[in-house]
């Protein structure tokens, strides 16, 4: 079955009237002019708005747009004990930045981090709402470790802590949980660390929970033979190029679902849906009979909002047309 999915983030501001509300609220919250509750109310409103927008684009598997996240690491790190947040660093090779977490003590889970916001988002979605958690390997790799000494030990400690979080999300009704591990695409030698941490993270989740490894901002080419054995149900992969991971799909036998990042989340140029449909048809022997989601190559928050919407519309159209061709 071919469907469409958002990866994680969605633009929280836009150029149309009223689309600056969250930006203004955050600025007012920073100066103390509005309370935490008032900011949350605005964030809730924008969450509902971006969910509705994804659904209007025709997306089957939507997210909360991560509109409350200032970057991909800090919201998780802040919620765990043992982390502090330090200076700005470039997010991979993008022109955007994140605040680097610093582990200063044992990493422990104290209370749910994302559950309240997940429950709110789910109450506003009419399609399946994907929960997204930044994975233990990427968190460890991009943070400063002043406590554990070894990347593997650090990642495992985070995995044990976040295991409670994914369990809490599952208990709260998350049926599709994506674990984001973008850092692996640029550090393939670390794969054993990711594999070990991921196994701990998803251990004990109910069988009904669909788990997905989210990778983006780089390809998995060269690693595909290994990732197909990971204990997740779906592999989220960037495949903008024909010669990268895409060409490896045929070479391996695997039963997992695929979330295919076929639309460039880093460029405003809109893909021609017909071209992408043809690519999918060429790959039909691999894709048929499998759960496949057509998606952007990464989160969309660094595109202008209208372009982000059109990319999602494009993903939905491709999924629909390819499904017809497969039938």
């Amino acid at each position: 079955m071919l469907r469409s999915a958002a990866v994680n983030s969605y633009p929280r501001v836009g150029d149309r009237g009223g689309q600056q509300k969250l930006r203004a609220a955050i600025a007012h919250h920073d100066t103390g002019a509005i309370s935490d509750e008032e900011l949350r109310a605005v964030a809730d409103e924008i969450t509902a708005e971006v969910i509705a927008e994804q659904e209007r684009a025709g997306i089957d598997l939507v997210t909360d747009g991560q509109v409350r996240w200032d970057d991909s690491l800090a919201p998780i790190a802040r919620g765990l004990a043992g982390f502090e947040i330090a200076g700005l660093l470039r997010w991979f090779d993008t022109n955007t930045y994140y605040r680097q977490p610093v582990a200063t003590g044992p990493i422990e889970w104290r209370r749910p981090i994302l559950v309240r916001d997940f429950e709110f988002a789910r109450s506003r979605a009419t399609r399946t709402l994907k929960a997204v958690v930044t994975g233990p390997y990427t968190l460890a790799k991009l943070s400063i470790d002043r406590h554990y000494g070894k990347l593997g030990d650090f990642a495992m400690a985070i995995a044990r802590a976040l295991r409670s979080e994914v369990q809490a999300l599952a208990s709260a009704g998350a049926t599709f949980i994506q674990i984001d591990e973008p850092a692996i695409t640029r550090n393939k030698k670390d794969f054993p660390i990711l594999a070990e941490a991921l196994a701990v993270l998803v251990d004990g989740l109910p069988k009904t929970t669909c788990t997905c490894l989210g990778t983006y901002l780089g390809e998995l080419a060269g690693l595909f033979a290994d990732v197909v054995d990971l204990p997740v149900d779906v592999l989220g992969i960037e495949c903008l190029r024909r010669d990268g991971t895409w060409s490896e799909l045929r070479k391996h036998s695997f039963s997992k679902g695929l979330q295919l990042g076929l639309l460039d989340a880093r460029n405003t140029r809109l893909e021609d849906p017909s071209d992408v449909v043809e690519r999918l048809v060429e790959m039909r022997t691999v894709l048929r009979g499998r759960d496949v989601w057509i998606a952007p190559s990464a989160g969309l928050e660094f595109l202008p909002r209208e372009t982000a919407f059109r990319k999602l519309e494009c993903a939905a159209e491709i999924a629909r047309r390819a499904q017809e061709r497969f039938a």
Binding site: R12, V13, G14, D15, R23, A27, D71, T96, Y98, E301
Partner: peptide
């Protein structure tokens, strides 16, 4: 020039196309 895109945190700018 694009519509607003996020730079980081609560900062936004218009990016060249």
């Amino acid at each position: 020039i694009s519509g607003l895109v996020r730079s980081y945190g609560n900062r936004y700018y218009r990016k060249p196309i």
